[in-house]
Design a protein around this nucleic acid. Sequence first.
DNA 1: AGTCGCCACGAAG
DNA 2: CTTCGTGGCGACT
Length: 103
Amino acid sequence: MGFDERVWALIERIPRGRVTTYKIIAERLGSKAYRAVGNACRRNPNAPKIPGHRVVNSDGRVGGYMGRTSGAQVGRKIKMLREEGVEVEGGRVLNFEEVLFRF
DNA sequence: AGTCGCCACGAAG
DNA sequence: CTTCGTGGCGACT
């Protein structure tokens, strides 16, 4: 099981209505490779099953989606989050600390 | 083997 | 805002 697979396995455990961060995932893997976590997400092979939209930046900014840091793809990410009850405004997760999932 | 070039990032300036 | 460090991976040679 490579690095990417381990990242995906963790992402699958994020509950609905919660988010986590690249940094937290890296720490959970015993690594400081938060940037590599972003790479793993970018290579996410199964968009619906692996909820990459629940992974945001450590400062609460929504970040990117489907390989993009801005644009329509990111818009869909925000929409999905809203649909599961996560408040997003101005590209930021509201009540970030409250919805943050730390495994 | 090694190198090089990404990055949905983070910290510091 | 801007750099700068950064880890792991894929695509090369």
